[in-house]
Design a protein around this nucleic acid. Sequence first.
DNA 1: AACCAGGACGTGA
DNA 2: TCACGTCATGGT
Length: 221
Amino acid sequence: MNDIENIYSKLWQLYGPQGWWPAPDYHPGDYNFPGTENQKFEICVGAILTQNTSWKNVEKAILNLKKYDLLAPEMLLTIEHKHLAQVIKSAGYFNQKARKLAVFSEYFLFLNGKSANRQELLQLWGVGPETADSILLYAFSQPTFVVDSYTKRLLTHLGLIKGAERYDHIKALFESCLPKDVILYQEYHALIVAHAKLHYSKKPYALNCLINKNWNTKRTD
DNA sequence: AACCAGGACGTGA
DNA sequence: TCACGTCATGGT
């Protein structure tokens, strides 16, 4: 078992299945989600809104979009910028994110039911590597690994990377060590977030990180 | 009262 | 490429 598989095994033992994506109307463990275009779009919107923002603030914005029947690409392209910005205010960066949602909505309509493409996503204003991979993995069920700041922080503390590596390098590290499996990738990223929220959000990091503590010692249980 | 949250973009060097 | 500055609300 390689290091990346070893970390996954420990995270799974500690936290069990996470069942992402955590959409407001999503029942954890339902791996058939998203089953509809609306649900896919909702995940994409969430992926954009959660950029450098807590999910709690994003959830308020999504519920607000639903409240006014705006959670559809046609609606987000019709609505006035200032109005949209106000509706998603709780998610922060509302001017930028309103624009990002409009740009993405156009792309989503262009797809017309087809699956999204990583190169195309990265060309959209407002979609960087993490957002693109989140959209591909959780909305379109493509086996692409999501790397976020928590992931970098965890691997850095475990000594697997120095910390300055590029996004695609870290993504490739995970994908080269794991079988190409959508649910595995979905659960792994979710587990990292769950673990990092507990042990890698406030400094000093990793005080009670069991993975870190047991990293160089062998377990018999 | 600073600090952080599941980033991405623009700019000057 | 690299290193910052900017965007902004809400919880601790």
